[in-house]
Design a protein around this nucleic acid. Structure first.
Lengths: 135, 135
DNA sequence: CTGATTTTGACAATCGTTCTCATCTGGCCG
DNA sequence: CGGCCAGATGAGAACGATTGTCAAAATCAG
């Protein structure tokens, strides 16, 4: 049975306060900053649990970190992620689901799962970045 | 300028002998097994170079490893990967490219990049696995 | 061949994550 | 209410993949 502890609640709350994906380390740092004596290992465990329960989404950043995000829609969906600020838009695409299933089936693969995420630079960051670029 | 060394060639060859994705560590082990005194750091560097040059594809496995694979088609494409044996099928999907670009544009995101990979269990492995399952 | 420059490789360092284990605690039962 | 016990916690060690360091070796242009 899964127990109700203030640590889990703290992790869940901290996660839902963020707009985009956060790393476990960041979340731990943030929690510590608020005075929580929560342990790093606990944050990892809580996040893993949330991900399993479908309350959070996880993906791996390019540099070997696991990122987590509180999920609004419970079902299967994908993300459009700003590579600069981490802001995230949830997207649904039945067409993709079908395509993936179809491709898998056509090649004799069973139990298709897919990783579909789109990265980009959101308007806000694109504007900020172009101001700095040495064009 | 990039110099031509037997180590790079060895890595490239070892990579193209494999049918699916391999981790840097595996490749290093395999090379060592053939008697090469090649160093681990060198394998990592060679793989990173290959990936940059477009001669190899890289992706991250679920458990924090970078996997590499010699690429047949040079252009942009995706993969259908057997989660059990690592066998890989290259797939192209213009529809996906368009969809990704469209989604990005509709949400005001610039420079869309996407991660689209399908994992499954290939026929061979599915057969092998079902034989073991405690149904 | 020679010299400049890149590459190599052994090993240490780093970084994210997981494990260990003693301790604590939530939730259920009497 | 009090006790019990499996599950949860946390400090720190352990771990595994990757990257950095730096002297020695190898490559290539002239």
């Amino acid at each position: 049975m899964r127990r109700q502890t203030w640590q889990r609640a703290a992790v869940r709350d901290a996660l839902s306060e963020r707009e985009g994906f956060v790393s476990a380390q960041d979340l731990h740092t943030a929690l510590k900053a608020t005075g929580s004596p929560i342990g790093l290992a606990t944050v990892y465990r809580a996040l893993a649990d949330l991900a399993v329960d479908g309350d959070a989404d996880s993906l791996q950043s390019g540099d070997g970190e696991n990122l987590y995000r509180a999920c609004v829609s419970q079902g299967h969906h994908h993300h459009l992620i700003c590579r600069s600020c981490g802001r995230t838009v949830e997207i649904e695409a039945d067409a993709i689901e079908e395509w993936a299933a179809d491709v898998a089936a056509r090649n004799g693969f069973r139990d298709p799962q897919h990783v579909v995420d789109v990265f980009g630079t959101c308007e806000r960051c694109a504007a900020a970045a172009s101001a700095c670029e040495v064009v």
